[in-house]
Structure formats: structure tokens, C-alpha cells
Design a protein around this nucleic acid. Structure first.
Lengths: 93, 93
DNA sequence: TTATTATATAGCCATATAGCTAAATAGTAA
DNA sequence: TTACTATTTAGCTATATGGCTATATAATAA
């Protein structure tokens, strides 16, 4: 499992960005309005998410639209469940 | 959701410790043998996990036995699933 | 071309993290 | 008491992180 995904998800601002993008794609500016941080700070968080492949970006004129890489997020969750889900005993449930 | 759990789970050494403890309680020393890090380094990782309430410790003579706080781990997974699982659309599946 | 808007990058600072070695602590036993 | 074992804590270093402001870039419009 990609270490970058864990690091990306470990930050509350980035988790909130992920939640926002679950609603649908949004521009960097629109995302930034949801936070009290400076715009470059959000840009950096977006870049961390991009490096983890959790989001993808696409330029549209002067805007840059970010969208969630749903499968990467779901794969991460599935991986977590597989490793850490269940009781841990051999004789499950 | 407790921020400490995210930070704790973001480190690969600590995730491996969690996996080891899923097999059953282990002493600090036994845990340390599974890694190539110095023993105090593992002790610090165990302390991070303890602060996140992911593990509990109990002294037994000169040994200290660590065990997994299964419910905390499961609650974290459930929380993740709830926030980030699913497609994100309103008209689910 | 110049100006404007949206966004990213650079550079800085303060704090956090993860590793190490050395020393302290806790329990047991002689 | 002394000695030994298991473990933690202290103190250090190097690197990473997350915030900021200032600047650069890209696209569009005049």
C-alpha cells in the first residue's frame, strides 16, 4: 500500500478536502473557500493529495478542477479492512 | 475521530506492530525483535500507539505486555468507512 | 502589448517526527 | 545491599511538515 496515501489521509485539512470532493469535482479556489488557511496552503495540501494519487487535476481555462480518485480511496479502505478488520483470532466470529 | 489514531496509523512500523498484536498480546521486547530498529525506538512507537489508545500495556514482573485495543481499531475503521466509503453520490449503488 | 484572475511555486520559520546512544527506572534474585 | 534484566526516558540530530508572504506562471480579455 502506498505510504503517501496514509500520510495524505493523516491530516484533517486534507481529509476534509477529500470529503468535499466526494460531493463532486471542484476548483482549487472553491475548495480553498471552505478553509481559513491561505490559498497557497490549500494548494500545497492539494499537491500532497495529488502525489498520493487520491485526486487528479485538470485545467479548464484559468481554473484547475480537482476531482477525487474514487478507486484509490476505495482501494485504500479495502486494504485497511483486510489488514486490520476482523477480530484477529483464527476462529473468526 | 481522534487525530492521534490517524497519526499513529500513518507510520509503517506502527502498523506492523498493530498487525503483530492482532495475533495476541506480546511483550515490548518480543515486539522489538521483529524490527531492525533500536529497542528504545520501538518503545517510543509503542508509546505513540498507547497515546492513541490503540494499545494498552500491563506490567508483568520485569516485562510489560502490550495488547491491542481491538475496539478502538475497529471504531476507527468504521469511522473511515462511514466518511469515505461508498461512491459519494446521493443515489448510491 | 497590458491587466486581471486563478493557481502554483519559492523561500522562510516554527514545530513535529523518527532515529540514535546513554542513562534512569522497575522488578527480581542473590 | 548488589547485580541483572526489561523497559522507559532524556537528550541529541536530521529531516519532514504545515503555516505564512511574496513571487511566478498560465489563461483570458482589453
Amino acid at each position: 500500500m502506498n505510504e503517501n496515501v496514509f500520510k495524505a489521509m493523516a491530516d484533517p485539512t486534507r481529509r476534509k478536502i477529500i470529503e468535499l470532493l466526494k460531493e463532486g469535482p471542484k476548483t482549487a479556489g472553491e475548495i480553498a473557500t471552505h478553509f481559513s488557511h491561505a490559498q497557497p496552503t490549500i494548494s500545497r495540501h492539494l499537491n500532497v493529495l495529488k502525489n498520493a494519487n487520491l485526486v487528479a487535476d485538470q485545467r479548464n481555462g484559468t481554473y484547475i478542477i480537482y476531482r477525487l480518485n474514487t478507486t484509490v480511496l476505495q482501494d485504500w479502505l479495502a486494504w485497511l479492512l483486510e489488514r486490520f478488520g476482523g477480530s484477529g483470532n483464527d476462529d473468526e466470529e
